[in-house]
Design a binder for these strands. Structure first.
Lengths: 195, 195
DNA sequence: ACAGAACGATGAACTAGCTTAAGAAAAACA
DNA sequence: TGTTTTTCTTAAGCTAGTTCATCGTTCTGT
């Protein structure tokens, strides 16, 4: 049995649920173990699940016309992840969601989420708050993409998530920050040399 | 008296409201006339309103360390706008929201929205759907910023919003698409010449 | 413990997009 | 309607970031 306390904390931080509703929510999620490199979502298939990472690391990415991979989003412990366009609108995904490490997740399927939202006030509020936070977060990301240089974007990320930065493969981080792996390598090593 | 039918249509497209709830919703909004160049939101002040554009055009923007203006978002007729980070979390704004033309808006203040959400199921659902759609939309925007060249971003925007593109000042569009006004000018005029 | 595969470093040549500057056109407002 | 201010165009020179190619290093599964 997995320890769900980080998940419960995460929820409590968003909205207050009665013990019964917390129970209902938890019951709606399944615990799943995922092997490194395993895909949870693939283009062409409808994203069935909203994912919470209990242990491990994931990234979502797209592959462009030239065959280049672009990481859209990371998720490590206590982060949420999906292909939101696919999940929210239940249309075929355009993104891959792939495990970067052997991981353990909680997942809820779209139909179960819909039922919780339709039948219960507190749980509907929870999902509303989650959507609001996502939108606000994504808006911040757009601002930093529009206003910062490659090096500034790296520095911001490294300062914000000092632990995470160590763990992620550099090629994935580079594309997330909208630069080539070679250029990220240069930024990092210039930094070391200056010290 | 303004014609609110586009607003009503917009809401109906998101979720079905009973006539009484539609009435309550409409009553919570105020109609406001705004002059070109007028600011609705400014950095340092908490964004009090969520804004729906009935007539006219707006953009939100930030000013970076070097004094450069970056348009984050546009809104013309039937679009929504705010500084979401500020509005959702009720923290000081980082963005300006400015009228590009003389305009007419509907605005709801955060407290009124909160009351509607807290007291009414259908209206809570409406705001949840709005947040979900925003998040999905912003996610798409991040993907196109990560995967497309400057010219491709312009072409996509022009194809998607052929009317809007004509109306927006070029300097604002350029910064929205993450390029200089000079470069956008070049892209546009190269295109004309090829024909 | 080892072979194979994936990942990261480095450097040289290149280019998409930026900067600067100055003039032309268009829009705003009195 | 004319004048002032703002916006757009063009072009030359530049640079942040890419591409390509090669080599060393570190994982990973068996």
């Amino acid at each position: 049995m997995e320890d769900l306390s980080p998940f419960i904390e995460n929820i409590n931080h968003k909205t207050r649920l009665s013990p019964e509703n917390m129970e209902r929510l938890i019951t709606a999620f399944q615990v799943v173990k995922v092997k490194r490199k395993q895909l949870l979502i693939q283009p062409g298939f409808v994203a069935k699940y909203r994912i919470y990472v209990l242990k491990g690391a994931f990234h979502s990415y797209v592959i462009d016309d030239k065959g280049n991979e672009h990481t859209i989003q990371f998720a490590v412990e206590d982060w949420w992840l999906s292909d939101y366009n696919s999940y929210i609108h239940q249309t075929p995904a355009t993104q891959f969601v792939e495990a970067l490490e052997n991981s353990i997740i909680l997942q809820i399927d779209h139909q179960a989420e819909q039922q919780l939202k339709d039948s219960n006030w507190e749980l509907a509020t929870l999902f509303r708050v989650m959507a609001e936070h996502s939108a606000a977060y994504l808006a911040r990301r757009i601002v930093s993409n529009l206003t910062q240089s490659a090096e500034e974007r790296y520095n911001e990320f490294a300062a914000k998530y000092p632990q995470v930065v160590q763990r992620l493969p550099q090629y994935a981080l580079a594309s997330y920050l909208n630069m080539t792996r070679e250029f990220l390598s240069k930024i990092r090593n210039d930094k070391v040399r200056k010290k």
